[in-house]
């Protein structure tokens, strides 16, 4: 579902964020991308979402070549993704329910189902009691759950969470990772980046991809 061959990304200012990365992620896998801050984790996600284009090497995501993808196909590709952004990117001034529904409005999901699906997703992230709260009035941990609900309500093939533990205390961080881990399904891969490796429950993980300064360091659980 995701294949990278000698994948590199160099920013216009010359920074080499990723240097000849090779990886392969199969459908239904739970994958952690780890590495210190500045190692290139977010850059890899930008490539996966088509925000940046590879400057060298090949990247294929859900059968699309990210080297050549056009704007329209990139849009369709993103509709198969459930992103949980590091900054969450919820819409303020909108309720929790509206925020979750916004993830579906332009997908081929009938309008009659929007509310039910959103309510179910919010139940799954244990936020049923906050359904009509405004996004800006939630704690970070609650916002994180809304963002996750918005991602899963789309029934994506690929859930991507960038530093989901970043702004959380230890207890909340572990809870969020547990929630994200549980989202992996037969046809839904989950990719999580984090520098907080000590919080990962490694029994569940199919693949660790460890990056340091844009280079792949270790790939297997044993090495990790």
């Amino acid at each position: 579902m995701i294949t990278a061959k000698n994948l590199s990304l160099q920013y216009p200012d010359g920074t080499i964020a990723l240097n000849e990365i090779n990886l392969h992620i199969k459908a239904g896998e739970l994958v952690y991308i780890t590495g210190p801050s500045g190692s290139g984790k977010t850059s890899l996600i930008k490539l996966l979402m088509g925000i940046e284009k590879p400057t060298a090497g090949q990247l294929e995501v859900l059968s699309h070549s990210m080297n050549r993808i056009d704007v329209k196909n990139r849009m369709f590709l993103r509709q198969y993704m459930g992103p949980v952004f590091q900054e969450l990117k919820l819409i303020n001034g909108r309720t929790v329910l509206d925020n979750v529904i916004l993830g579906m409005r332009f997908l081929p999901i009938p309008k009659q189902q929007w509310k039910t699906l959103a309510t179910d997703a919010l139940e799954k992230v244990k936020l049923s009691h906050k359904i009509l709260s405004y996004a800006e009035n939630l704690s970070w941990g609650e916002k994180q759950r809304v963002a996750i609900a918005r991602a899963i309500v789309r029934r994506p093939s690929l859930i991507i969470a960038d530093e989901p533990t970043g702004n959380l205390d230890r207890k909340n961080a572990i809870n969020i990772l547990e929630l994200l881990n549980s989202l992996r399904q037969e046809n839904t891969s989950v990719i999580i980046t984090t520098h907080a490796t000590h919080l990962i429950d490694s029994k569940l993980v199919d693949q660790f991809i460890q990056i340091a300064a844009g280079q792949l360091e270790a790939k297997s659980m044993e090495e990790f």
């Binding site: 849009m75 952004f85 819409i91 916004l102 332009f106 789309r154």
Partner: peptide, 16 residues
């Protein structure tokens, strides 16, 4: 711009 960015990252069509 932030909301627009979010929508585009979620795969919203341009007309939307």
């Amino acid at each position: 711009r932030q909301q627009i960015n979010t929508l585009l990252l979620l795969g919203a069509p341009n007309f939307f």
